[in-house]
Amino acid sequence: MEQIRQFFQANNIKQVELQGEDLLITYNDGKKETYSLSNNQELKPIKNYLQSQGKKSISLEELTELSKSQENKKNYWPWIIGGGVILAGIIGLVIWLVMRKKKGGEE
């Protein structure tokens, strides 16, 4: 999705609409052009994205909002895994210290 957003920005595209096997592209200046997907490999990812999302069209504004909402999602898994590893290390250290003291007292 980020690649599609960058493609929109690089080519001054405002909106793309899927029309059968063609894409109707509306540019920021209002100009509209229709491109056949059969001979344009560069536009196929846009078609695939629209079909996977069940949409007929997408705009740069929508892509930007989707991109921002994905950036705002926090991924806590690294913190959870890191905390678990640290906790396991502390528990292992405590067990090692207790076992060492017991062995030292038995002699």
Rank of each mutant, 00 (worst) to 15 (best):
D29Q: 08
G30A: 13
E33T: 12
Y35K: 14
L37Q: 07
L37A: 09
L37W: 03
N39V: 11
N40K: 13
Q41F: 12
K44T: 15
P45G: 08
I46D: 04
N48E: 13
N48A: 14
S57V: 05
S57L: 05
S59A: 03
S59D: 08
S59N: 04
E61F: 12
E62V: 11
L63W: 01
T64P: 03
E65I: 11
E65M: 11
L66A: 11
S67G: 07
K68M: 11
S69A: 13
S69V: 10
S69W: 00
E71L: 08
K73H: 06
K73A: 05
K73Q: 14
K74N: 03
K74P: 00
W77T: 15
W77R: 12
P78F: 01
P78N: 04
W79F: 13
I80E: 00
I80A: 01
I80Q: 03
G83E: 02
G84R: 03
G84M: 05
V85C: 04
I86M: 05
I86Q: 04
L87W: 02
L87H: 02
A88S: 09
I91R: 01
I91H: 02
G92N: 09
L93C: 09
L93K: 06
V94R: 06
W96R: 10
V98G: 05
V98E: 07
K101I: 15
K101G: 06
K103F: 12
G104Q: 13
